[in-house]
């Protein structure tokens, strides 16, 4: 089966900044895609949502500065006791329905960290 041409990249970050340098490396990959002119969306889910803490290590700074789009799974956020905390500016709340729409889109490449 030939590979479909990808019109968008969905990068799913599940580990977050406290798990080690991998989160920053993955978000750097996302920023590189944006700089290369690729339509790029990052989904933060599970501990990945911690990258969206406004007083956190600034994991999203490079990506947001480059114009990348960031979705944050609200279920993961609330489960982690953060319902009273507003995330970093510019991110978008989502649930699994929105994510499913992108994953089912044959033109969206999904990379899961």
């Amino acid at each position: 089966m030939s590979a479909a041409p990808w019109s968008e990249h969905l990068l799913v970050e599940t580990h977050g900044p406290w798990a080690g340098p991998g989160c920053a490396a993955f978000l750097r990959d996302a920023a590189a895609l944006v700089h290369a002119g690729r339509r790029t969306l990052v989904l933060l889910v599970q501990d990945g949502v911690l990258a969206a803490l406004p007083h956190g290590p600034g994991a999203l700074d490079e990506l947001m500065d480059a114009g990348g789009a960031v979705w944050v799974d609200r279920y993961s956020w609330v489960h982690r006791g953060l319902s009273t905390v507003d995330p970093a500016a510019g991110v978008t709340w989502v649930g699994m329905d929105e994510v499913a729409g992108r994953v089912l889109d044959p033109a969206v490449q999904v990379v899961w960290h």
Binding site: G16, W18, D47, V78, H79, R80, G81, L82, S83
Partner: peptide
């Protein structure tokens, strides 16, 4: 410690 401090937050369950 770390993100686990969120366990001490006075919040409801995620559902």
């Amino acid at each position: 410690r770390g993100p686990a401090v969120g366990c001490a937050a006075r919040t409801g369950a995620a559902g």
